Every structure is written in structure tokens, then in C-alpha cells.
Computed example of a mutant assay.
Amino acid sequence: MFKHGCEVHSFDPSMLQPSYQRNESSWFHNLGLSSRNTDSYRPPPDQYVKAPQVWQMRTLTSVKEMLGHTGRVIDLLKIDIEGFEWDVVENMRETGELELLRQFSLEFHLFPKFPPMEDYVHLYKTFTNLREEMGFAEFSAHPHPKTLEKDKFNLQGDSQFVNTLFRYPPAP
């Protein structure tokens, strides 16, 4: 994307790399996207996190403030945050950040124990509200191989959306 003149910011605390500028229009940040701000998030061990770690996490609103991008439109936001995307999408809806997205690429996850099964109805509503209430039209969907056995349950997929209600500046 940066080769085509786009400003690109990548975020991933699991890589254990310091923040740095890759080139004139691309940056890597040792920071995670969350539904709340914290400097002491301890991720559970999994295939990516082998040893105990502490991560700095920020909401999209806080990230934009940190970058000096408050109120700025994001042309494309891609999130892949291993089951935490549901709360982040809710936070972006509540703060109005979704209105400032032109396109949204979402990798969603349902694992055997996370998020809890009792949350599935709410998660389904969050996913469908992207389309029905928030105006995001899904133009591409790619489900990953799934496992439906209870103890190994795994449902993931990639969905790409365009914001059909996008207006700038947003309506008051």
C-alpha cells in the first residue's frame, strides 16, 4: 500500500519488536488495538504467545490521537486480533470511528473457549449490524477451514466491507 502513496501504520505487540519507521510513509507500532486503553495487558498463552508478556493496548480513538489523526478518515482498516475484534468493533461503533472508515477488512474468530459461547448471539448481532445498521456492504468473504467438534471448535473468516453510508464530514 505504501508503494502506491498510502500512509500505512501496522500494529502488533506480539512481535516483540520496538516501534520504528519502515520508510517515508510506513510505520510499525509495538501496540495493540483494543476496546480499552491499558499499559498492562497480559495476553493468554497460545500459538503466538509462548512466554509471559505485557502489552500496551489502545482504542482506535486513542491511536488516532497519538498519531495526530483525530477526525481523520481511514481509507482501509484491517484488523486481525484473535477474538478481540468483537469488542473493538463495538467500541468503534460507540465512538463514531466506524463512520470515518471507507473500507474495513475484518478477520473474525470463534475459538473453543474464547469468546464465551454465551456471547455468540451478541457477536452475531454485532456482525450483522455492520451490514444492516452501519451500512457496511460485504464485498468479499473467505471462510477459513472450520472445526465443529465442541472441544476443538474453531470458526474463522475474512470479510471485506465498503462503507456505503460514508460521508465526509460525517452527518451531525
Rank of each mutant, 00 (worst) to 15 (best):
E149S: 08
S26E: 15
M117A: 15
D80A: 00
T38V: 06
R58V: 07
Q103S: 10
D119S: 12
Y20M: 05
A171P: 11
F139T: 10
Q47A: 09
W27N: 05
M1Y: 14
W86N: 08
E94A: 07
M57S: 02
L148N: 11
K146N: 11
P18Y: 06
Q21E: 14
V121G: 10
P52N: 05
E132F: 09
R42F: 06
V121K: 10
L106C: 04
V63D: 00
Q160T: 03
C6P: 06
P18D: 13
V88C: 03
Y20N: 14
M92P: 10
G5R: 02
L98R: 05
Q103I: 00
N154F: 14
D158S: 07
D46H: 10
L155K: 04
E118Q: 12
L16I: 13
L16M: 15
D119F: 08
E24N: 09
R93P: 04
K78C: 01
V88D: 02
T38C: 09
H122Q: 09
I79D: 00
K50D: 12
Q17G: 08
V49M: 07
H4G: 11
E149R: 02
N23S: 15
L165A: 14
G157V: 04
I79F: 02
F153G: 08
D75W: 06
F104M: 01
E132S: 07
F136T: 07
D119H: 13
E107F: 01
T95R: 03
P115R: 00
L16A: 14
